[in-house]
Design a protein around this nucleic acid. Sequence first.
DNA 1: ACTTTGACTATAA
DNA 2: GTTATAGCCAAAG
Length: 114
Amino acid sequence: MIWEESFFERVFQITRLIPKGRVTSYGAIARALGTTGSSRMVGWAMSVSYAAKPSVPAHRVVNRNGLLTGKHHFGSPDRMKQLLEQEGVQIENDRVKNFKNIFWDPASLAELAE
DNA sequence: ACTTTGACTATAA
DNA sequence: GTTATAGCCAAAG
């Protein structure tokens, strides 16, 4: 088992696996960790991800609707949107365009990470 | 050890 | 489409 670390560390590892130009949801990450109901904890982990090393691409994590719920935690409300657009993710009205298409399920790589 | 909280999610109206 | 409510789990106070 590689994840003998705390819950946060596991979240960080999964989050760092998100491919560029893709996004995922908090619930999906939680489910990939085996703690399906702890989706809120995933978001909390992101709140401390600023101290994580290496940096965690928290901007690639949105809620299950593709809404940039955590944008307010990036210093500037538009920071998250800009970071995503930089990676080719189209944002419209604080929502990921074609979210269903670019959604990346961490569980797909969680098996390989083991 | 107890209470509060939080970047969520699912269901209902 | 929206808002409201409840369930959820782990860390912080």
